[in-house]
Simulated scan of single mutants.
Amino acid sequence: MRKPLYINDFAMHCILGGDKKTVFEKLKNGTRGEFTIYDVAGVMRPAATIDPESLPPVALSKYDNRVNRLSQAVLDQMEGSIARAVKKFGADRIGIFIGSCDNGSEASLSALKCFRETGAYPEGYVLDYQAADFPARYIAERFGITGMLSVHSTACASSASAFVSARNNIYAGNCDAAIVGGVDIASRSVILGFASLEAMSDRPTNPFSANRTGLTLGDAAAFFLVTRERCEDLQAEGSAGLSVVGFGESADADHITAPRADGEGAYQAMKASLADAELDAGSIGYVNLHGTGTRLNDSMEAVAVNRLFGENTPASSTKALTGHTLGAAGALEASFCCLALENGGVLPAHLFDGCEDPKLPKVKLVKPGESADGLKYCISNSFAFGGCNVSLIVAKE
């Protein structure tokens, strides 16, 4: 039996913009956001970061950091629908399920620098900045929510995992509605970490190209207000008829960072999502690829996608436009599927150099302005370190 989550509202903020219309225009045209160049141990690396000074300080000052400024920018757009949900169900019946990986390393590193230079931490600095639940506690306090709170840090699948957790808890009766999503930043510590893995490109990522050289990181936040039943009194403009209907997970148990080379884990996650949604592969009109631009990811994902969907289902990686937004990526890319569904099937473009890798199984990559007639179902892939694979199916009635 299907167990969907109905979407009453959603919003996002990334390097493409802070509102649905702006983001959609850049997605459909394949227009990349402006990347910033960082010096990583003497090597220049681009990242799709948002200037924190362009975002207002968090009104609850004790939560003011880059991560929560991004969350605030998104939650401001959803304030009305969330307030209505709190009034309808009660503050103790709203759950918060988010994915995030780097909550406060920048604050901690700058505090440590201050301590080394002066012998004291900056005024107001607390270790809570580093806590995994810090961004979720901000959301709870902002809206006066006292229901269950869960933060997932499953690397690049974090906010996709949060959707699975939200669905399970809503249907278990632990909450009636949920704020689900993700937020993450490309901090200097994260950039250094990925550089040490030799996974970062020295240019904007070039997914599924024969010339790909690695990933590029980025900042983003994306949130959804979801319920078990469709609630017309909660729905915001543009959310009518949208739902998440398929939830599939798998675990490679193969390597601490690299995906399983034969794509079996990715294939099983997508297959499980289809089974959960009671759909066959032919029902899917668009695949949002995980598509990091690393040789290992793109090769295994091409195998899995071609095996399940063949070579004629439109697919694209949006990470060339936004950067890889880590813990936020699953929610952000699910929101891109929603934008395609609510805009007549116009699909996010696949931006790359046009040089397809002949060693990869064929995948139909979306060109700018391309659309899928009668688009009803999209699948969004998130494949993370440790072989944590999640695929979500987003639908429009």
Rank of each mutant, 00 (worst) to 15 (best):
M1T: 15
R2Q: 15
K3D: 06
I7Y: 10
D9T: 11
G18T: 08
G18W: 01
E25M: 12
K28L: 09
N29D: 14
T36F: 08
A41C: 03
G42D: 03
T49E: 08
P52R: 08
E53C: 06
S54I: 09
A59G: 04
S61V: 11
K62D: 10
D64H: 11
N65I: 04
N68G: 01
A73C: 07
A73M: 04
A73T: 05
V74N: 00
V74P: 01
V74C: 04
E79L: 02
G80A: 14
A83K: 12
A85M: 01
A85K: 01
K88L: 14
G90W: 11
I94W: 08
F97R: 11
D102W: 01
G104F: 02
E123H: 08
A131G: 00
F134K: 04
R142V: 01
G144T: 09
V151C: 12
V164I: 15
S165T: 13
R167W: 05
N169P: 00
G173E: 13
N174S: 08
C175P: 02
A177S: 04
A177I: 03
A178W: 04
V183I: 14
D184H: 04
D184P: 05
S189G: 09
L192E: 09
F194K: 06
L197F: 14
S201G: 11
F208S: 00
S209V: 02
A210T: 07
N211D: 15
G218V: 02
D219F: 01
V226E: 14
C231L: 00
D233N: 13
L234P: 05
A236R: 13
G238W: 04
G241C: 02
L242Y: 11
V245Y: 01
G246C: 07
G248D: 02
S250E: 07
D254C: 08
I256Y: 12
Q268I: 13
K271Q: 11
A281H: 01
G282L: 02
S283F: 00
G285F: 07
V287Q: 10
N288Y: 00
N288Q: 06
L289Q: 10
G291W: 05
T294G: 10
D298M: 09
A304F: 06
V305W: 09
L308W: 04
G310S: 11
A315T: 05
K319F: 02
A320W: 08
A320S: 15
T325M: 12
G327T: 07
A329T: 13
A329E: 08
A331T: 08
A334C: 15
F336N: 10
A349I: 06
C355A: 14
D357P: 03
P358D: 06
V363H: 03
K364H: 15
K364L: 11
V366P: 13
K367Q: 10
S371G: 12
D373H: 11
C378E: 08
N381H: 10
S382W: 03
A384L: 12
F385D: 08
G386M: 02
G387M: 01
V390D: 00
V390R: 03
V394P: 10
A395L: 10
